[in-house]
Amino acid sequence: MRILQINASYKPAYIYGGPTMSVSALSEHLVKAKHDVLVLTTTANGEEELSVKPNAAKVIDGVNVVYFDRITKDHTHFSPKLLNAVRQQASTFNVIHIHAWWNLVSVLSCAIALSKGAKVVVSPRGTLSKYSFKHKSGLLKSVFHKTIGLNLLRRCAIHATSASEQEELTDLINPKLIFNIPNFIQLPVFEQKAKAGDRDHTKLLFLSRIDEKKGLDILINALALVNIPWSLSIAGDGDVRYIERVKKLAVAKKIDHHISWLGFRQSDKFEIYRQHDLFILPSHNENFGNVVLESLSVGTPVLISKHVGLAGYVKEHNLGWIFDLDETLLKNTIELAAKDVDKRLVIETDAPALIASHFGDDALTQNYVDMYNQIDQND
């Protein structure tokens, strides 16, 4: 099968977090399964550009990738050369898979591909959540969705990565086809981490792209109320203004001396997960949450908000604690999890094998191939 993947960013642009890694992993596994895959992307790397030769094919970990120049250096990622490539090649693919929304790569590629009669599947990756419509140009998004976006999306198949995202997308779009397939995640070779409860304080970890959506300010306010010894490591980068706001909040709450800022981490992230007792993700909205599975894959229990796509999975398999976005409730959940050493030890022992069995590469690859086949055969 010949598959075109379109995303505004591709590795090594890890600054964009989970979506970049998920699209890369999907493309690589499809190639390993002997499918013909081409990725069209831009040189986007935050406010800078990747140091790659633009507008030329390059093989990245077995995948044919073309990085195109972009004119706008912000989240719109306007790239006329990429759009021209879509126009020229759209009809040569069985399926075109477009990732994310609300940028000119995704929206205009979708419109062009549909005009060429191509079969298109869109993975919004959280960009069409209710939270998205209420934040960051929410009114403009609503107007665009009602006048243009909805018409495009209803002509596409839709891919969700969790049951909660599927429910939101079904209500919003009423698509002709919708699929729920988890993201690929990088799974480490498991090594036993330090036993829970063998420290004089509870080591907490936040590891993710840092943005207001991630709820770090709520975590800081909750930690100021916690009555047990703790430390917090924050790994990641992102919105500079929001990071400064969180740092000032920690100082105001007089807890900044308990917090270590590790910056962006990639090559040693699994070791960082292992070094901590609990992983916390207090997001306002998360369509999936790769980091949740990464943490569990090394046996580190998770505390996640009910708005994280994987909350249902964590609850079903008793792999951590779910909380609502309230400072007092989060404070109570942290204390409960810190004291429940028996549950943490069970998760530490059982979670790695469970994650490997449920999110293994071969089964997920076949699920995606089945989706593409169904889309290709649908009139």
Rank of each mutant, 00 (worst) to 15 (best):
L336I: 05
V314S: 06
L204C: 09
W321K: 02
D200E: 09
N373M: 07
V189R: 01
D361M: 05
P352C: 13
H135L: 01
L330K: 04
L223T: 14
V308H: 05
L216H: 12
F179I: 11
N373V: 06
K254G: 00
E28V: 11
I243M: 14
K306I: 02
A8L: 08
I220C: 11
E271P: 00
S51M: 11
Q266K: 14
S267A: 14
L262T: 06
A351G: 04
P229W: 11
S208D: 11
T76D: 09
A90V: 10
Q275T: 04
D350T: 12
K331C: 14
A224S: 15
F78T: 00
K141R: 15
L303Y: 05
F179W: 03
V341D: 07
A57K: 13
N378G: 00
E271R: 04
A100H: 03
H159C: 12
L172C: 04
L26G: 10
V31G: 13
A224H: 12
R274A: 12
R265H: 06
V189A: 13
V302W: 01
A338S: 15
L330Q: 06
C110Y: 08
L354Y: 03
M1K: 05
S305V: 11
D200I: 03
H276K: 01
E168N: 07
N7L: 01
H97D: 13
G126H: 03
S24R: 11
N318V: 08
A356P: 05
K176E: 13
R155N: 15
R265E: 14
N318M: 05
V121G: 02
N151V: 02
K193H: 07
K193V: 01
L140D: 04
I218C: 08
V120N: 07
L204S: 10
L329T: 13
A113R: 05
G126P: 10
S129T: 13
F279N: 02
P124G: 07
Q266A: 12
I355D: 04
E167Q: 15
S129E: 09
T328K: 14
T333K: 14
S295D: 06
S162D: 10
G18A: 14
A222C: 12
S106I: 06
E49I: 05
R245G: 15
K81D: 12
K130A: 10
E327M: 02
Q374K: 14
R125G: 01
F190H: 13
D361H: 08
K193S: 14
L216S: 11
G46K: 01
A337L: 02
N94C: 03
S109M: 09
K193C: 04
A160Y: 00
L139R: 05
R70A: 04
R344Q: 13
Y10F: 15
Q366H: 08
G312M: 09
L205E: 08
H77N: 14
L336D: 08
L140P: 00
T202Q: 11
F179L: 03
D340A: 01
A118E: 02
E28P: 05
G236S: 05
L187F: 04
L114Y: 07
D324A: 09
L330P: 03
D211E: 11
P282M: 07
I178N: 05
Y131D: 01
V66N: 03
L205V: 05
K136R: 13
E165T: 08
I347D: 03
N55C: 04
K331N: 12
I178H: 09
V292L: 03
N318P: 00
S162I: 02
S91H: 10
Q186F: 07
V122F: 02
K195S: 10
T300K: 06
